[in-house]
Nucleic acid binder design. Structure first.
Length: 883
RNA sequence: GGCGAUGUAGCUCAGCGGGAGAGCCCCAGUCUUACACACUGGUUGUCGUAGGUUCAAAUCCUACCGUCGUCACCA
């Protein structure tokens, strides 16, 4: 046959896009119709707020690796892509855009605003999809979903109404976390606590009867207009007698009582706490215990409302804080101000300080849902990788609180609740009502709030498959197999998916959860816009190619560990892809004039057996690693096999045959090389998808595409442990000779005379004897003599110590004898130390009686080895001394 | 403060009960019929500290120190 030509330089740009297009056109990402158990992943849907970052690249690279691997094992495989409407985040992005046009969303009105936001969604969606395709994600685009598309909206509505019917959704007036900037309530876990430096103000509150005053401590003096009491600890001897007395609230004409409540700490501050039920969670609870009124002092935008004295109305809370303090100071109420560090809640979307805010909101009662999720985990139906996240999962579920799901936003699923304007009747409906179901009035209106984004995301594993309909997809592909996501959304998303799934389908949504680390920069910092340390996946692909990116990520993704990268990190994958390319190019060149023949195991040399043995071992390693989510182990195994074993040793060894005059042998070796190359492509495809497909299509011994080829199997007929050992001995000889050449400063092109004396081991001796030419090639020797009988004089030869053989290099004139002796002596002292340790162990009765027999036998072998090494080296020194 | 992770070669990290490893970096040599994004060889370590368990500990346990993450907070 003719040689097959490959472009001289590896250039991923030349084929990645067209290969992706071909995969899609050929339907390679669709689940096969096979009978095996489907392997299914739902992609964590990226937010349509922007474009993908390295975190997404990590996440999707790992998913793609899993999907491609399982596809090749023959299981019907489905990877469902999609995007998330990301309520608050997207609305914020839209509002920022409007701001640039000098507009507020109120200027547009709800309908117009939503229209614009849908357009924004489309814009970002297209970019995101383009990125996923560049990365090479083999997801089934015909299954793509969006959290606000028709089917998913139906699922959201169904779940809301069902939960309401089951008494698990309720509405009520509660103190919730409220972001004044976003203008909406937040769930408890959407609040991030950060340490802020504030002030602790001590303020005098006079007794109503004019008999003096007490002093309260507060960090937020502006909330005093909502004070309804001052509390002390009932056991506080200082204040016991004051309980029940009335105080005059400064700056107002209200009077409030002193009450006793055990939540007050005696030690902290002044031991007296002002109680403001509408603006502090503890006070809210305290207020309920004492039947106190809750006075709301804030407008929804976080400014002080009409309850407050006129001069403070309309001021943002933080501004009012200083002003109130100043006023109190002028009037002599302010005693002192101290700096005070404390944790303050911030909005996870805009980082604004969150206000506890009294309002009507919708909640999901979580206890029973959480218990089901805990039980499923205890029954062993879900496994986290790494396992430690199970603690996070369980402790959150054990301490779960009700979930505030209403958001005062426009972008999202509108709450399916209607109110009658005439009789006030409330309707929770699956279909839009046209009139009041109680009084028949047509004057009805829908709740203006929308649902928390996570209220649609938590249905993702089954809503994407058609639920609530019993679709064929749902029946075939649910529950899914594995979820791959980052640890920062275990609460928001993972736990809730499990709860929703159990509640609505009775099954867990997936069995395995692989929690990835985060992508950070080389200094370990999170990648962020503000630090400017982010890397754009598309830039990586542009510079190095998608394969280099995916492989590097896999190589660095030790189970669950954070991945620290900079642009240069991806050279690792790039170099490897380049190596694969060049090795292939070389092998294909050598097809010129050759005929491929059937692989005949009976004609295998020891070296052939060794390479198949190594391939086999690595196949097993890769399979185990991927199935156990140890991506780095799998990446390392293919790297080591292909580069070290195949390229550095086997291909080098094959040159002997390749450049011989024996046509039959040349055909034979080329056939084996092609066989291993093709199998390597299949082995590497999950992590190096494009280059393997490109090469696979050029190989003369392949049919079809690698993406749909079968993954290599571990085969018993490829186990050749004996030959693997022989090869290792040969590598030791070769390394020893090369080493001495380098150490002694002998030029690489100087042909040496070498004598090898295998130690009373016929197998090794005949192996070495059979591969003299190979040894010559590997060491650039002029002659290699195998001297099992120890008949050849080695006078004047430099000895190289080795395991199971002795090697002599004839270099008498080129050696610095003293230097070599010193080096060998150091080797002896090292070996002696090891021997001593070994002897100590073996003479220890306890070791001999307690240790496993294998361990003892191994130790004995080691001891013998050390002894031999010392003896040999000793001899070598003597030889050197005789020079 | 609770819980958790982590501390191994200059850097990034594997290893997690029986002789300290990889990649990058560094040094020396080589354009040896594919690859200088290559080849060959080499240097580098109180495996955080202190105890304990064990015949044996980088590996298991305890405490402490450092770093990071989470959850919860007393105005």
């Amino acid at each position: 046959m003719k040689a097959i030509e490959l472009e001289k330089a590896y250039d991923p740009k030349a084929f990645e896009d067209s290969i992706y297009k071909q995969w899609v056109e050929d339907g390679n990402f669709k689940p096969s119709t096979g009978k095996g158990k489907p392997f299914v992943i739902v992609m964590p849907p990226p937010n349509v707020t922007g474009i993908l970052h390295m975190g997404h690249a990590l996440n999707n690279s790992l998913q793609d690796t899993l999907i491609r691997y399982y596809r090749m094992t023959g299981r019907p495989t489905l990877w469902i892509p999609g995007t998330d409407h990301a309520g608050i985040a997207t609305q914020n992005v839209m509002e920022r855009r409007l701001q640039k046009e000098g507009l507020r969303r109120q200027d547009l009105g709800r309908e117009k605003f939503l229209e614009r936001t849908w357009a924004l969604k489309e814009e970002h969606h297209d970019v995101i999809v383009g990125q996923l395709k560049k990365i090479g994600c083999s997801c089934d685009w015909d299954h793509e979903r969006f959290t606000m598309d028709e089917g998913l909206s139906k699922a959201v509505r169904e779940t809301f109404v069902t939960l309401y019917e089951r008494g698990l959704v309720y509405k009520g007036l509660y103190l919730v976390n409220y972001c004044p900037h976003c203008g909406t309530a937040l769930a408890d876990d959407e609040v991030e606590h950060q340490e802020d430096v504030g002030h602790l103000y001590d303020i005098n509150y006079p007794f109503a009867d004019g008999s003096g005053h007490i002093t309260v401590a507060t960090t937020r003096p502006e909330t005093m207009f909502g004070d309804v009491a001052v509390a002390v600890n009932p056991d506080d001897e200082r204040y016991k007698s004051l309980v029940g007395k009335m105080l005059k609230l400064p700056l107002t004409d209200r009077e409030i009582p002193i009450i006793a409540d055990s939540f007050v700490g005696i030690e902290f501050g002044t031991g007296m706490v002002k109680i403001t039920p509408a603006h502090d969670p503890n006070d809210w609870e305290c207020g309920k215990r004492h039947n106190l009124e809750a006075i709301n002092i804030l407008n929804p935008d976080g400014t002080l409302n009409d309850v407050c004295p006129e001069e403070f109305r309309g001021l943002p809370a933080e501004v009012a804080r200083d002003k109130v303090a100043q006023k109190l100071n002028e009037l002599g109420y302010l005693v002192r101000v101290q700096e005070h560090k404390h944790e303050v809640g911030h909005c996870y979307r805009c980082n604004t300080t969150v206000e506890p805010y009294l309002s009507q909101q919708w909640f999901v009662r979580m206890r029973s849902l959480a218990d089901k999720a805990l039980d499923a985990w205890k029954r062993g139906e879900i496994h986290f990788y790494p396992k430690r996240w199970e603690n996070t999962y369980s402790s959150w579920l054990e301490n779960i609180r009700d979930w505030c799901i209403s958001r005062q936003l426009w972008w999202g699923h509108r709450i399916p609740v209607w109110y009658c304007d005439d009789c006030g009747h409330m309707m929770v409906e699956r279909e839009d009502p046209t009139c009041c179901s109680k009084c028949g009035s047509k004057h009805i209106h829908q709740d203006t709030d929308v649902l928390d984004t996570w209220f649609s995301s938590w249905l993702w594993p089954f809503s994407t498959l058609g639920w609530p309909e019993e679709t064929p997809d749902f029946k075939r592909f649910f529950p899914t197999s594995t979820l791959v996501t980052a640890y920062d959304i275990i609460f928001f998303w993972v736990s809730r998916m499990i709860m929703a799934s159990l509640e609505f389908t009775g099954k867990v949504p997936f069995n395995d959860i692989y929690i990835t680390g985060l992508v950070r920069d080389k200094k370990g910092r999170k990648m962020s816009k503000s630090l400017g340390n982010g890397i754009d996946p598309l830039d990586v692909i542009d510079l190095y190619g998608a394969d280099a990116m995916k492989f590097t990520i896999c190589y660095l993704a030790a189970q669950g560990q954070d991945v620290l990268v900079d642009m240069d990190s991806f050279k690792l994958g790039s170099r490897f892809a380049n190596k694969i390319w060049n090795a292939t190019r070389y092998l294909l060149m050598n097809l010129e004039g050759r005929n491929l023949v059937a692989i005949d195991q009976s004609k295998f040399t020891e070296v052939d057996k060794w390479i198949y043995h190594s391939l086999n071992e690595n196949v097993r390693k890769v399979r185990n690693a991927i199935e156990g989510y140890k991506f780095n182990d799998a990446a390392q195994a293919i790297y080591d096999f292909f580069w070290n074993d195949f390229c550095d040793w086997y291909v080098e060894a094959s040159k002997l045959s390749l450049y011989s005059g024996d046509d039959a042998e040349k055909d034979r070796i080329v056939s084996i090389l092609m066989d291993i190359l093709a199998e390597s492509m299949r082995l590497m495809h999950p992590m190096l998808s494009f280059i393997t497909e490109e090469i696979y299509s050029k190989l003369p011994n392949t049919e079809g595409k690698v993406i749909t080829a079968s993954f290599p199997e571990y085969r018993n007929d490829r186990i050749h442990a004996e030959e693997a050992h022989l090869m290792q001995c040969m590598q030791d000889v070769v390394r020893g000779i090369r080493n001495s050449r380098a150490e002694l400063g002998i030029p690489a092109d100087k042909k040496l005379r070498i004598v090898i004396r295998p130690d009373e081991n016929d197998c090794l001796a005949s192996f070495m004897a059979g591969h003299v030419d190979l040894l010559k090639n590997f060491t650039n020797a002029g002659s290699v003599e195998i001297d099992a009988e120890k008949a050849i004089s080695v006078e004047g030869a430099f000895p190289v110590a080795g395991q199971g053989f002795e090697t002599y290099v004839f270099v008498r004139d080129a050696i610095d004898v003293d230097k070599e002796i010193a080096k060998l002596e150091e080797e002896i002292s090292k070996a002696k130390a090891l021997l001593e340790g070994s002897e100590k162990k073996l003479s220890n009765e306890k070791f001999v009686s307690f240790a496993k027999p294998e361990a003892i036998e191994k130790e004995r072998a080691k001891k013998r080895e050390f002894e031999e090494k010392i003896e040999k080296t000793q001899k070598h020194i003597e030889v050197l001394r005789s020079f």
